[in-house]
Design a protein around this nucleic acid. Structure first.
Lengths: 275, 275
DNA sequence: ATAAACTATACAGTAACTGTATAGTCAAGA
DNA sequence: TCTTGACTATACAGTTACTGTATAGTTTAT
């Protein structure tokens, strides 16, 4: 009457039924996770329909990233209570993983769109742009002269933004005291910053790069050699009667993922808030 | 001037800076993925700040599930164009994975809530319930007598629902011709079905278990031995002048994940639509 | 000078398979 | 009955991306 339930499948047949490799079935047999219903005297393994439920469970728990060893334990003595706890834990884990992947997705998407935007840029001209406020996060102040200190703050900031998922794929920038800059002092980096997406950063302390008129110029070359360009911008401002205020924003345009050959080379956009 | 950029870190220090195992750095060195800036004559490796950009890129691509071998190739000759393509591909992959994990999350959540609901059930009584319409997907018809055929259709249906992610974590059920049932013929399984969440199944051909009055009973025991219970329900109906119509729904209550010991044991809810 | 704390290398082990070589088995057709 | 092709089993090795460990050498602090 229930012969169909006991109908025998060879390893290859059962594997095909589930779209898995038959070596996997043999492996599961060898680690005592899932054994054939019968092994005949010629050594051939035979599986039955009746075992498909268990195999389904194994497949599901596997997808839930539960190690085979844990699955084995679970199958050995599973109560509804234990199952419930197990599922709950795995579901918590899933949530974490989904959150991380969605963040990664944001990061990648932003990198891609920035790389596309970069194609239509004119590096040579100095221009004046009316800009809307843009959301940014800023680091703690980079204390004065020591470049070592700047580097430390930078790394810490990057690590923090990475871990809190504040980082959204936009390149790093530095802020500079704009008034000092206009006096020819290009050493006053006040802090670093990242652009962020306002929408995905509720739980972070972010601020705005203020709306207003900006003097904007571009630079490419070794980032140790940017001063002449900053001088040009200052000269331009002085000869046109423009007054700097607040901060200058030096932001990388090149994405790190794309430009690794020479770690000194950079392409930067420099925007200085005007009074 | 840029000495800070060349500041040397030992393996341990650099590893600590990034929160990775220092053996990992050695491993990356050994496979020529990421080598120290200098190796001194005592064999000690030294890394610098200048290398951190590359290391960041490696970490990111790693998170994007890119194999180390691919990362190596990418670093060796990366152009903005190639990077763009690479990121695009990985982002496609991410999307797939996110979709899968979110589906899994739904499945698990539904399993959990069903298991909780199950705790408050009374198995002994036969009752009449006014039920709202419920979304279900149905299999192709299970052709007549052959149980083998039923099993085949069932497995195919389950696999399909799994692959199309129509499966939402609810247990499998079978539908039976209710009029035949009232005549004492319990062999007419017409097809199998799954409950589904209406909200997540736009692209699937689903129908409704119709709204209406249902006669509801429960069963527990070997699922090969359900006929007496079906008979009881029929008797109850006949003695109360109730008329079956449409389909009877035999649905598993036990979640497979929780009950694996005996693949014959089942707990089922039987609901039959009344005229 | 010595001990603690580091460094390097070589070797082995992990998880969850997957591939391959070899040998045995089975079902169908000539 | 023989043979052929398609299967099966086992043993062994290989995969990826590390990680652990034993041993030996080096640096740093006291």
């Amino acid at each position: 009457m229930n012969d169909f339930f006991q109908k025998e499948f060879t390893t290859g047949q059962f594997a095909a039924l589930y779209g898995v490799n038959k070596r996997t079935l043999m492996y599961y047999d060898s680690i005592d996770l899932f054994k054939p219903a019968i092994v005949k005297k010629n050594g051939y393994r035979y599986y039955t329909y009746g075992q498909s439920v268990i195999f389904d469970v194994i497949q599901l728990l596997r997808k839930l990233r539960l190690p085979l060893e844990e699955i084995k334990k679970h199958l050995a003595h599973c109560t509804p209570q234990k199952t419930s706890t197990l599922l709950y834990n795995q579901s918590q884990m899933l949530e974490q993983e989904i959150a991380e992947l969605m963040w990664l997705q944001r990061v990648v998407q932003n990198k891609i769109s920035r790389m596309e935007a970069k194609l239509e840029m004119d590096y040579s001209k100095i221009e004046m742009i009316e800009s809307k406020a843009q959301a940014i996060v800023t680091s703690e102040p980079t204390s004065e002269i020591s470049m070592e200190q700047v580097m430390k703050v930078t790394l810490k900031f990057m690590r923090d933004c990475y871990h809190t998922r504040t980082y959204n794929g936009y390149p790093l920038g530095y802020m500079m005291d704009a008034e000092k800059m206009q006096q020819g002092d290009f050493s006053q980096l006040t802090n670093c910053f990242y652009h962020i997406d306002e929408t995905n950063s509720e739980d972070v302390n972010w601020t705005y790069k203020p709306a207003g008129r900006y003097l904007v110029g571009y630079y490419r070359g070794s980032w140790t050699d940017m001063d002449p360009t900053l001088q040009q911008l200052t000269d331009y401002a002085n000869s046109h009667g423009l007054v700097f205020t607040g901060s200058a924003y030096l932001e990388n345009i090149l994405d790190d993922t794309a430009a690794v050959e020479d770690s000194y080379y950079c392409e930067a956009k420099i925007s200085i808030l005007l009074k």
